[in-house]
Design a protein around this nucleic acid. Structure first.
Lengths: 171, 171
DNA sequence: GGGTCTCTGTTACAAGATAACTTTTCGATT
DNA sequence: AATCGAAAAGTTATCTTGTAACAGAGACCC
């Protein structure tokens, strides 16, 4: 329970489970997205940026319809494709991830372009932590090779209790 | 590409990707289910057994509505809950697995009561191989411990090309 | 042989996702 | 600056997946 310095920025460790300056975390993520889009010639349009902001409000996963509801609260009456297209863009370019187990989406917290990370999902507070997949990926690759399988993408998700919720439920 | 003796029965290795005596594979799985239910005091009712048979027809994953359609073809007009309840039973007791990435279900091919196996999903022929998860599970446990996360269940799925379809697409 | 509990049948609906087409916006080109 | 083409947003309709809730039937236990 003694993790100390995880609040210095977004990008490493299980930031989602650690207390941190979230306002700063959000700002950093948005700026990073803007910068990466500018550099890559991608268009971070208002809808896309707004959806990213919505995802960034917490480290919990949001369903496409949750996102849509949030957009709706703000005036117009967006239809599902609006949300899905924005989410698809964010996922395609690594600004967000889809959590298969929840049919939901989270903002990316690993500024690097790690592909197919490992997710740890708290069943209590719904926060989702994103971890590098290197060791697991190695194991999978070894298994795949053994049976002659050619891996494209992987989904690795663990559901359980985060440190904070463990402490609470133990009280 | 030199796997040789995987056809001697269901239960080990990537049987789904290896040529084998599938009629026998199916029979063995059904008998095993009957035996385990009898032993555990579970009721393998007609609907449940029929759904298991449907899943066992191939090593591909079937959606709940595919299963339902198959049931419907056979006379009555079952409603969704019929299929879902049978599938839930099969999954709960380890006779089938849910593939999160596909929102679909496959019959279990590991006679053992391995929990949370690793799945390799062929994007071409849709076959799903089930592998023991020991190494991956160890890695995940180590990562979880590091960040103070308590793992309940895990989802590990890899999508790609099975040996057979690789050979075909290479031709 | 009555009571309980599980399973099945049925209705209705909620939630998640996409197809197809139109209109708008943006950026490039002349 | 006017125009053209591509990409994104808006819109309608529909499809797929999954559940809540309740009524009836069957199995199992004393």
């Amino acid at each position: 329970m003694a993790r100390s310095d995880t609040s210095k920025g977004c990008g490493e460790g299980a930031i989602a489970f650690a207390p941190h300056d979230h306002a700063r975390c959000r700002r950093a993520a948005i700026e990073d997205a803007r910068a990466r889009c500018a550099a890559a010639g991608l268009r971070l349009t208002p809808v896309r940026e707004r959806v990213l902001e919505i995802l960034l409000e917490s480290h919990a996963a949001l369903g496409a319809y949750d996102v849509l509801r949030r957009l709706t609260d703000e005036g117009a009456v967006p239809q599902p494709p609006i949300a899905y297209r924005a989410l698809d863009f964010l996922v395609a370019h690594g600004f967000a991830h889809r959590i298969e187990k929840l049919n939901a989406y989270v903002a990316c917290t690993a500024s690097a372009e790690t592909h197919d990370p490992v997710f740890m999902i708290c069943r209590d507070c719904k926060a989702v932590a994103e971890l590098p997949s290197a060791p697991v990926a190695r194991d999978l690759e070894r298994e795949a090779e053994r049976i002659g399988f050619d891996i494209g993408r992987t989904v690795v998700e663990a559901e359980g209790l985060c440190p904070g919720c463990r402490a609470e439920s133990a009280s």
